[in-house]
Simulated assay, not measured.
Amino acid sequence: MVERILDAGQQVLITHGYDGASTNRIAETAGISPGSLYQYFPNKDAIAGAVIDRYSDQLAAQVAANVTERLTQPAPDYVRESIAALLDALDVHPEFLRAVMEQTPRLGGAGKLLAFEQRIGELTLAYLTINNKQVREDAPLHTASWMLVRMVEHLCVRYILDRPPIPRERFLDEITLMSLNYLRPWATPPHDCFA
């Protein structure tokens, strides 16, 4: 019954967004009475929070498995295919993603997203450590993995939500180039350019 309610909650969030969601709509979509729904969840926020938690867990598992499979690939392939996997995982229902991004902090689900970022950051750090000859010498690997994960995550989310007139393959090329250039040795370090 809980899974049925969560499936209905996700469908209502996709169709109506958070503001248009209600326990009555969720109960109707689940094919149950509001009274039955209240036996499992006290309100809309509890349902939305559980839906977001489930989504975060699925997203983390899917992306982490994909990234883990690529740890031995050359950097251009690893970066591009890892970003493509993240895009695929995020781009299922843009309106649901919007609800997740807007409501997660308010519903207290930020811990799940932080855990996701941390897991992907650990995998990125492992890749950078294994392939440290491909990374500029002055790049602290913990800093580099933190920066890369947040940059890629933010740009992928914005790409899906904003739907800019950039073809997906072009977006992947550009964000891969940004990521790789961040890691490459510089001919002139940035602090020397302004001296």
Rank of each mutant, 00 (worst) to 15 (best):
S33H: 13
A48C: 09
L183V: 02
Q10M: 11
L172A: 07
L148F: 04
E169H: 03
Y127N: 04
P189W: 07
V157L: 06
R168D: 02
E69T: 03
S145D: 05
G121V: 00
P189V: 12
Q39T: 07
D53Q: 13
E174L: 12
D57V: 13
R184Q: 14
C156T: 02
S36Y: 05
L97P: 01
V135K: 13
L97I: 02
N66Y: 04
A139F: 13
Q58D: 14
T15C: 08
N181H: 15
I175K: 10
A46G: 08
Y182D: 02
A27G: 09
S56G: 10
Y182E: 02
D45H: 11
M178Y: 04
I130V: 09
S33G: 11
A64D: 11
Q62I: 09
E28P: 02
L183W: 03
R4C: 00
R80S: 06
Y159G: 02
T143L: 13
E153Y: 05
A187P: 00
G111V: 02
D162W: 02
I14K: 15
M101Q: 07
M1Q: 09
Q10W: 02
P42V: 15
P74H: 10
P167E: 13
R170G: 01
A50F: 02
Q10N: 04
L161D: 00
D45C: 03
R184T: 08
T23I: 14
G108L: 07
